[in-house]
């Protein structure tokens, strides 16, 4: 399982790098999907297949469909590629990359110092166990997340309604 963990971790890192460096938006999004799937594989290797499956269903299967959909609709051509290329000059990314690299060093040092005893245990976390934890000790957090999502839903529906009342044109079949 450790080999699977390191392999999928490597794929995730490489794919994420390509997300940033790729100049074509749709291809970059595809790399993001690959990255999300390999993160799901990391979950599988760590013995949390429930989290892994949800990662694929929710992120790779639903949210990324929306992303790809929007980017496809914009149909960005050569201008967008040129703009991306201009943004990828070393003067743009060198500073942030240095700072992030420093943070990575701190993280790696911390992990290394606490090393040992943190190997992959290989025990399986079932859906039932996840549910018991979520609706046991973390019940308040789950309820708060639900409230937050409800608020977002109401807001989205309100914003959408205002736009159609302003006479921006109603969708066909909506005026029934």
């Amino acid at each position: 399982m450790e080999l699977a963990f390191y392999l999928s971790g490597l794929v995730a890192i490489l794919a994420t790098l390509r997300v940033i460096t790729h100049t074509h938006p749709v291809h970059a999004l595809l790399y993001l999907i690959v990255s999300l799937i390999s993160v799901a594989m990391v979950f599988f290797a760590l013995g949390a297949p429930f989290a892994g499956a949800l990662e694929i269903i929710v992120y790779a299967g639903a949210i990324m469909v929306l992303f790809v959909f929007v980017v496809m609709m914009l149909n960005l051509g050569g201008a967008a590629v040129a703009q991306e290329r201009a943004w990828l000059r070393p003067s743009t990314w060198l500073g942030p990359a240095l700072l992030a690299g420093l943070l990575l060093g701190v993280l790696a040092f911390d992990l290394w110092r606490g090393g040992g005893g943190r190997a992959i245990a290989g025990e399986l976390l079932t859906a039932k166990a996840v549910g018991m934890t979520l609706f046991g000790p973390w019940l308040i957090a789950v309820e708060l997340a639900a409230l937050l999502l409800l608020a977002a839903l109401v807001t989205a529906s309100h914003v959408g309604r205002l736009a159609s009342r302003d006479g921006a044109g109603t969708a066909p079949g909506e005026e029934r």
């Binding site: 999907i33 297949p49 429930f50 499956a53 269903i57 299967g61 859906a127």
Partner: peptide, 18 residues
């Protein structure tokens, strides 16, 4: 014979859209 069986189908159905 996985214990996440059904979720695997949902995941594959999600990928199939691409």
């Amino acid at each position: 014979d996985w214990h996440i069986g059904l979720l695997f189908f949902l995941a594959m159905a999600g990928i199939n859209v691409y």
